[in-house]
Structure formats: C-alpha cells, structure tokens
C-alpha cells in the first residue's frame, strides 16, 4: 500500500503516524486486505447483506427525557474542565 493511501486513511481515522508506524501499518494493512480479497472467490450475486446477527425490527421508545443522573459523575472524569464545561484548546 502506498504512503499516500496510508496517510489518507490515517487522517480519516484521526491517528498520527510516526516513522515506524508507516512501515508496520503498511505491511499489516496490505496483508489483511489481500486476505479479505479471498472473499471475491465466493459467488454472492443476489444475496441480501446481513447487517446484524438476529435483530429484525427497529425498536423505538417514547420521545421523553430520561436521566440516568450521572452528569456530575461523568463530568468528574474530564481531563480538563472549568465549572461544568470541558476545556479544549482555543478555537480562534
């Protein structure tokens, strides 16, 4: 797999590649994709894709607010916060 393809994929995956990563991931991805290509030997013409193991219908619930009451506990996990806000680097 050429480096440009790898870098495009890494950008989409939001992962920064170091020097060693390029070679390692290039080899690993090429190997996996070549292996995936073996599926092309199977005739799947006219078959419906299975997207989920056993789920047949979509299940809906009433459009009502339900609180698990966890907001404060979750905020406590923030790596950086100010009052009840998550802090990130300045956008502007």
């Amino acid at each position: 797999m050429d480096i440009a393809e790898l870098e495009t994929t890494a950008a989409l995956a939001q992962i920064e590649l170091g020097e060693g990563d390029l070679e390692r991931l290039g080899t690993a991805l090429s190997q996996m994709l070549a292996y995936f290509d073996t599926m092309s030997a199977l005739d799947t013409e006219g078959l419906e894709p299975t997207t989920h193991a056993l789920v047949k219908d979509n299940r809906v619930r009433p459009d009502a607010v339900v609180s698990a009451g966890l907001a404060d506990d979750l905020l406590d996990q923030a790596p950086e916060r100010e009052d009840r806000f998550f802090v990130i680097p300045n956008v502007l």
Partner: peptide, 19 residues
Amino acid sequence: RSAGFGNEVKTRIMVGTYV
C-alpha cells in the same frame, strides 16, 4: 488517539477505516 491506542488497536482502526 496516537498516544492512547496500542499497535493492534491502531491496525484494526486503520483497516476498518480503509474498508
């Protein structure tokens, strides 16, 4: 993500993103 994920996780995310 680069510092937090190990090699195998990065590989699988990359493969999944590619496909």
